[in-house]
Design a protein around this nucleic acid. Structure first.
Lengths: 142, 142
DNA sequence: CCTTTTTGTTATCAAAAGACAAGTACCGGT
DNA sequence: ACCGGTACTTGTCTTTTGATAACAAAAAGG
């Protein structure tokens, strides 16, 4: 196997993935959140509740800046803050009803774009697709 | 096939791809370019020469801001500007020797990270990998 | 108690990025 | 030669993001 050729394919592939996901989330700009704020909300969709430290780690933001953006999101009514009673230094953030609703809209749009892309594929092709996703996920993108 | 389940896998997959490519290009911050400037240089690696309009389209930047960033990159000696003689309104940008060298370093580092990830895979697994990349590229990320 | 450490917030400042108005130079057609 | 459109540049202003110092509150461990 020619490793360099494989690497080339890897490069164009990742570039395509970026392009497509950018394309799919394009409509997010309608909503009143900045890119960084969106990343935070997206992260909160997967794990809730979260502390500022966790967000800072995963979204690659300093703690002070994370705190600032969380405050802005809270002011916009997209997330809510509570104090952890087990350790009162820790603050727990979760999406508010509005935040849930907004991210729901975004994901629905992304899903629709995805469905459109795989529209017309046979059942067999879908199965191959799933296998390919799992394979790459387990062997390269982990 | 459960489309929702497939969509879920798609989501976690793209998120993993982002994470990994972020991880692989982490060292770029050593070089003296901003993220936007890096995207421009990366684009120039694939197609050269390019006009400001093409860059603006592909990197999703307004023309004035593209022009500004290209000026900065030129001042840093990372790219060069020439006028298209066929149409003297058009400006052609290409990487300078320094720019080529820098992007070469970055790509070498990315390649090394990639090799490391696929290290230990058998010849057969590599073949499967290639197939999977091609499949996803052709059916979803196009 | 009394440090020390952890967790988070606030306040600034600077750099990067986005938006937009205005201007220059060139092309293509008339 | 003129005119409308294209390609790009310049200048300016705002917002977003990044970095850092200083602070407060709670926990952890003597």
């Amino acid at each position: 196997m020619d490793r360099s050729a494989l690497f080339q394919k890897f490069l164009t592939f990742t570039s395509s993935v970026h392009e497509v996901s950018h394309e799919l989330t394009r409509g997010v700009k309608n909503e009143d959140v900045t890119p960084v704020q969106y990343k935070i909300l997206e992260y909160m969709m997967f794990s809730q509740p979260v502390t500022p430290s966790e967000i800072a780690d995963c979204v690659d933001l300093s703690l002070p800046n994370t705190s600032r953006e969380l405050r802005k999101l809270t002011e916009k009514g997209l997330c809510e803050k509570t104090t952890d009673n087990a350790d009162r230094r820790r603050q727990l953030f979760r999406l508010s009803a509005d935040g849930q609703a907004m991210m729901g809209r975004v994901f629905a749009q992304v899903q629709q774009g995805f469905e459109q892309r795989i529209d017309g594929l046979t059942e067999e092709e879908l199965q191959e697709l799933e296998k390919a996703l799992e394979l790459l996920q387990s062997k390269v993108f982990r």
